[in-house]
Simulated scan of single mutants.
Amino acid sequence: MKSKKIHHVAIICSDYEKSKNFYTNVLRFSIIKETFREQRNSYKLDLKVGDNDQIELFSFPNPPSRVNSPEACGLRHLAFEVENLTESVAYIESKGISVEPVRVDELTGKSFTFFKDPDDLPLEIYEQ
């Protein structure tokens, strides 16, 4: 197999409207398409993150809780590249969202930090 890129990242949320608001109004990802799948009583929201990146936001009735250990097996976090970390942190905090202290990646020398989405999914912003 020869992969060209990551096509999308899928996220299942517990409160569709709250997560839709977070990803579209707070993080400012644009909506590509919103679909209600009646047979599953579920929404699928396709979001444009960057020039070629997508997130699929799903809602399902009564999804199980996420394992919350930061070192649990599976997806650890999603990271988004930003031009200015200081401005991005100030913006996120202005929306009432807690942001961890900024750290420096010892391998690249780049600054980064973490915050969480409405379901406690860890999200990283990483300065380009």
Rank of each mutant, 00 (worst) to 15 (best):
Lys95Ile: 03
Leu75Val: 10
Val89Asp: 08
Ser65Gln: 06
Asn25Lys: 03
Gly96Phe: 14
Glu71Thr: 14
Tyr126Lys: 14
Glu87Trp: 05
Ile55Ser: 04
Ile55Gly: 05
Phe58Glu: 02
Glu127Cys: 12
Ser69Cys: 08
His77Asn: 15
Leu85Pro: 02
Leu27Phe: 09
Ile6Leu: 05
Lys20Asn: 03
Lys5Pro: 05
Ile55Asp: 08
Phe29Leu: 05
Lys4Cys: 09
Glu38Asp: 04
Asn41Asp: 11
Lys116Ser: 03
Lys2Leu: 09
Ile32Asn: 15
Ile11Cys: 01
Glu127Val: 06
Asp120Cys: 10
Asp15Pro: 15
Leu107Gly: 13
Ser19Met: 10
Thr86Met: 04
Tyr23His: 04
Cys13Pro: 09
Phe60Gly: 00
Leu85Asp: 12
Asp46Phe: 15
Thr24Val: 14
Cys13Ala: 02
Asp15Tyr: 00
Leu107Met: 15
Ala79Arg: 01
Ser94His: 02
Lys18Glu: 12
Asp15Met: 03
Arg28Glu: 06
Tyr126Gln: 13
Glu81Ala: 10
Asp117Val: 02
Gln128Ala: 10
His7Gly: 14
His8Gln: 01
Cys13Tyr: 00
Val102Ser: 15
Phe115Met: 04
Ser94Gln: 03
Tyr43Ala: 07
Arg76Phe: 06
Phe22Leu: 02
Asp46Trp: 09
Ser3Leu: 11
Ser19Ile: 13
Asn84Gln: 08
His77Val: 11
Glu81Lys: 03
Pro63His: 01
Ile12Pro: 09
Phe115Thr: 02
Phe112Cys: 03
